[in-house]
């Protein structure tokens, strides 16, 4: 099993590099001369030429990419055009905040969404199930930035229960996690419900009942594990949705995270920082996909066997 994990970790590298290449290529087209931004008032022809040589900006495209990639693997994200400090510093300062919000949303959605999905799958014609379906539909259609604004209006402005911005203390995490997670949770609920419906109809559930297994145990011991596969897929793969949404969430709730850094850097034409943010997010998604595969192996013994984990 551990062999498999290592193999996949290594396989991740070319993927991340490929993504970096794509993003690098796109950002290559940003118009303007970086030296203008960096040097500002101190700009002169000579200084510009010197700076370009130093940063390698006068080299060809492939050389520049190669240089970037090699630095990247060593953890060097380059230098910000604006702050003239290593991009890594800014990322290290901001990324944990993003991580906290995303993790908060994920935890909330999984802990609440999965049980709801399970229950409405087991009782598909009940009021609860219909309510779940409607909530699910609304949830995936609700724009999270609007939801964020509405939550602020209700809980911060009107009720004054929760803060509307910043990130200090548990209370300030509640609204952003709720807003960010709404789409994600709706998806999880729907998938878990429909997966549960599928599984309940299977023959082996009938066998379990015929053995005299109690109704509760039929769901918890037999149906649940079998129904988790599609849900796990969504939980893992949809992290992209969360990362895309965190940009919006950080904007609405004024949280100093990677998302807002990305937007600011785009506005200021600070290409290295933009690249840094995007690469980090791509790495997150790649790691998340890997974790999904690992969890698969634990849930479904057939997959574990394929990975060569059978009798570890």
């Amino acid at each position: 099993m551990s062999k498999f994990v290592v193999k996949r970790l290594i396989a991740m590298i070319p993927v991340v590099l490929a993504v970096t290449f794509v993003v690098f290529t796109i950002m290559w087209f940003v118009p303007g001369d970086p030296t203008n931004i960096i040097l500002g008032n101190e700009w002169s022809e000579a200084a510009s030429a010197e700076l370009k040589a130093e940063l390698g900006l006068d080299q060809s495209f492939l050389v520049q990419f190669f240089r970037y990639a090699t630095n990247l693997v060593q953890g060097d994200f380059g230098m910000s055009y604006i702050t003239r400090a290593p991009v890594r510093e800014q990322l290290m300062a901001r990324f944990p905040n993003t991580l906290v919000v995303v993790a908060g949303a994920m935890l909330f959605c999984v802990c609440v969404g999965v049980p709801i999905g399970v229950y409405s799958g087991v009782r598909p014609y009940s009021l609860f199930s219909n309510f779940t379906m409607v909530a699910g539909l609304l949830g995936i259609s609700f724009p999270i930035f609007w939801l964020g604004l509405l939550l602020i209006l209700l809980f911060s402005v009107h009720l004054r229960w929760l803060p509307s911005s910043g990130l200090d203390g548990f209370a300030s995490l509640i609204l952003p996690s709720l807003a960010l997670g709404s789409n994600y949770m709706a998806n999880i609920m729907r998938i878990q419900r429909s997966s549960m419906l599928e599984v309940i109809r299977q023959d082996y559930i009938r066998t379990a009942k015929a053995k005299g297994v109690t109704a509760r145990d039929v769901v918890v011991k037999h149906a649940l594990q079998n129904s988790m596969m599609p849900t796990i897929t969504v939980i893992g793969m949809d992290i992209g949705t969360l990362l895309g949404g965190v940009v919006l969430t950080e904007t609405v709730f004024s949280i100093p995270g990677t998302g807002r850094l990305l937007v600011e850097s785009i506005n200021k034409r600070d290409t290295p920082t933009v690249l840094g943010c995007l690469v980090i997010m791509a790495v997150c998604i790649a790691i998340s996909n890997l974790m999904v595969d690992i969890v698969y192996a634990y849930v479904d013994p057939r997959i574990k066997a394929q990975y060569g984990g059978g009798k570890d």
Partner: peptide
């Protein structure tokens, strides 16, 4: 295509817009 799928749509669109206006 898989490489592109590693980036969420919003972020990819943002990158393109950053470069091209």
């Amino acid at each position: 295509m898989d490489v592109f799928l590693c980036l969420p749509d919003v972020l990819l669109a943002l990158a393109i817009v950053a470069a091209f206006g």
